[in-house]
Nucleic acid binder design. Structure first.
Length: 672
DNA sequence: TTCTTATTAAACAAGG
DNA sequence: CCCTTGTTTAATAAGA
């Protein structure tokens, strides 16, 4: 416990430090002060004071520019959800670094969307920071007044020898002030960009009038939207419908609501600072919000669809209220938006790469298909690709979290997209926790949605080892993996498991041996592990909730169907699609995309450790099945788990295996 | 509080 | 002898 909290505090600091920029220094100092001194940070070093003063100058200057009342959001905090007026002053939001690496982003996310306790700590720190800023602002104002007074006195006080020097000094200060104004303008532009990015996913494609720096990054909002929907499948059909005429972004939403001083403040400030077309565009967009229907991208089925929120909002106004209160412009929301942005960017980037790769693969396989024995392989590939493609295209609903899938009854907790949620993120560190696995959360659902996240962020996945092992095995083409391949899957899929290999590998072995659901199958080349789906389901306490009919379906299928079909259905239920292709996992784009991202991120390490496929070349599951080790079962356990392990592998012919031409590359697992 | 399950550590053995 | 793989035991944490 202590260890964990210590490391988290440490990473807290590191996050702050990672955010480059002078403003960040201020934040860091302030946070450190507030951390050490509690709520009343008092003594500030001279250098830090200088920074603070500079910051205050920016604030004061902006206030002068925008002609606004003093910040009303200073009182803001969010001790609980009942007072959701988390209104961070714009300056605070501006402190968040604009350019940010994925790692930093993940760290920020981990820190800022962490447990409620940590969030609260952060909020308290923010509060302290704002308090301090207010004090310093007043201090700075006084200084300015004194300066003005001095200036006046000097102007009226005749010609003294020192006057010129003093005037020079004043001029210097004014110059500095002007520079600060310039700086502030830049910051504001950055902030505007931030806002635009936040609203990027919902910017109307037909209005390319925004000064989109995002376009400079090679992104087209419409494409991103489409890509995101295709790849993650985290939206339902009505989203697609509203996709084309949704004009709402965060800014317009804020404006459309009654009281959002921050946004209007921002807009006004923009108008007064540069008065560029971007502002007008923003305003125009905001004025066009009447045409929005209730097809808000963040609202569907009475639920707020902000990633990880899922708050139930009875009607659209209440949703708007919720959106403005819970997802106001604060660091958390911006961090989430940035992560989303980064995800989309990476996805798009990798999609193009993988399209090429796919092209090369298909042409390669097409050549090979002329050989007599190779025919099943391209057929399989094509059919599976077609299957997943049609599945994703024809029915976007057939996604892990949608209630129409067999997975739905298994998702009592995370209904809806659980991407990077607090629930999926707070399992950081070596604490022993009861994982959501206990509640029958289908790993494929959450994991598929957060796959990229887990791949890049050193966040402990909220699943048990058993679930993870099973997922890895079921993902493999032949539903069987060697121990080493399981290791590789872990390191490939989870950044968390790239550390402490000895620990988790031991745990993996331990789980493989311990759980009856893992069946060791020997063949000539060695041993592979398969999943006994029936045992896996039996292993878990049946706490299924959700749609009653679907529950009934599952139960009846377990009760009355043949073991084979029951296991198949169970597998499908976990994987959300027939056979071994889940909706999103089976998406070839995402799958290979994920691999590509992994390769990019992990570079050499992955090349040595998990190159190629986890599938076991040359091993025929059919050959080895008769040598299945039947585990002794000390517990009551009546039945028919014999042929089940066959089931998961039966849909591949031995020819398929034989034709694969990977090499059994030596694997190097020393990840640290 | 008790029971169950998950995690972690560690010892040990077999085999390459 | 070392490493990998696999089994087993024990301690501990966490949830029901």
């Amino acid at each position: 416990m202590m260890q964990e909290s210590g490391t988290e505090t440490k990473s807290n600091d590191s996050v702050i430090q990672n955010g480059a920029g002078p403003d960040n220094h201020l934040l860091e100092c302030t946070l450190r002060e507030s951390r050490s001194n509690g709520e009343t940070p008092l003594e500030v070093g001279a250098v830090e004071l200088a920074h603070l003063q500079q910051q205050q100058a920016l604030q004061a200057a902006r206030q002068l520019l925008i002609n606004q009342q003093p910040f009303s959001g200073i009182k803001a905090n969010k001790r609980n959800d009942k007072h959701p007026s988390l209104q961070v002053p714009v300056s605070v939001a501006m402190m968040t670094p604009q350019v940010i690496t994925p790692q930093q982003m993940q760290q920020i996310l981990q820190q800022q969307v962490l447990t409620p306790q940590q969030l609260q700590v952060l909020l308290q720190q923010q509060q302290a920071l704002m308090l301090q800023q207010q004090q310093l602002q007043e201090f700075y104002k006084k200084q300015q007044e004194q300066l003005q007074l001095q200036l006046l006195q000097q102007q009226h006080a005749g010609k003294q020898p020192k006057e010129q020097q003093q005037q020079q000094q004043v001029a210097t200060q004014q110059l500095a002030f002007q520079q600060q104004l310039l700086q502030m303008q830049q910051l504001q532009q950055q902030h505007l960009l931030t806002l635009q990015r936040q609203g990027l996913l919902s910017i109307q494609p037909g209005q390319p009038t925004l000064p989109l720096q995002s376009l400079a990054q090679g992104m087209i909002p419409a494409e991103l939207q489409q890509l995101w929907k295709e790849v993650t499948g985290s939206h339902t059909a009505d989203d697609v419908v509203c996709n084309n005429h949704s004009t709402l972004d965060l800014s317009t939403t804020c404006v459309s609501s009654t009281a959002q001083p921050k946004t209007s403040l921002l807009l006004n400030s923009q108008a007064s600072t540069n008065g560029q077309a971007s502002v007008l565009t923003l305003k125009r967009e905001s004025s066009s919000h009447e045409e929005y229907t209730h097809n808000h991208p963040l609202y569907g089925h009475g639920v707020c669809k902000w990633p990880g929120c899922e708050t139930i909002c009875e009607d659209f106004p209440s949703f708007l209220k919720h959106l403005n209160s819970e997802h106001a412009l604060d660091d958390r929301s911006t961090a989430q938006c940035r992560v989303q942005m980064q995800v989309v960017q990476q996805l798009e980037l990798q999609l193009s790469k993988d399209k090429e790769r796919l092209q090369a693969m298909m042409s390669h396989l097409h050549v090979k298909s002329t050989e007599p024995k190779a025919s099943p392989q391209p057929l399989n590939l094509v059919s599976s690709a077609t299957l997943s493609k049609t599945a994703s295209e024809a029915s976007p609903q057939s996604l892990p979290h949608t209630p129409t899938t067999p997975t739905a009854p298994l998702t009592p907790i995370t209904q809806g997209p659980s991407v990077i949620t607090t629930t999926s993120i707070h399992n950081v560190g070596p604490i022993r926790r009861r994982y959501s696995d206990k509640y029958n959360i289908p790993i494929s659902s959450d994991f598929a949605q957060n796959q990229e996240f887990y791949k890049n962020a050193e966040v402990r996945p909220p699943f048990t080892y058993a679930s993870l092992i099973r997922q890895g095995i079921l993902e493999s083409p032949e539903k069987q993996l060697t121990l080493n391949e399981i290791y590789n899957w872990f390191t490939r899929q989870f950044a968390y498991f790239r550390r402490n290999a000895a620990t988790w590998k031991n745990a993996v072995r331990h789980n493989l041996s311990l759980h009856k659901c893992f069946v060791r199958v020997e063949n000539v080349k060695g041993a592979v592990w398969t999943v006994d789906e029936m045992e896996f389901q039996k292993r878990r306490p049946q706490k299924i909730s959700g749609s009653p009919t679907l529950i009934k379906n599952i139960q009846t299928s377990h009760a009355y169907c043949s073991p084979l079909s029951a296991a198949l259905q169970a597998s499908m239920a976990e994987n959300s699609l027939p056979l071994y292709t889940t909706a999103s996992m089976g998406n070839p784009a995402l799958n290979s995309l994920a691999n590509a991202i992994r390769e990019d991120l992990n570079g050499v390490m992955e090349h040595t450790s998990s190159n190629g496929s986890d599938s076991s070349p040359g091993r025929s599951p059919m050959q080895g099945m008769h040598q299945v080790h039947v585990k002794e079962e000390p517990l009551d356990h009546d039945d028919n788990d014999g042929p089940l392990s066959l089931v998961t592998t039966a849909n591949h012919s031995p020819d398929f295996d034989r034709d694969r031409d990977y090499e059994d590359e030596p694997v190097n697992d020393d990840m640290e």
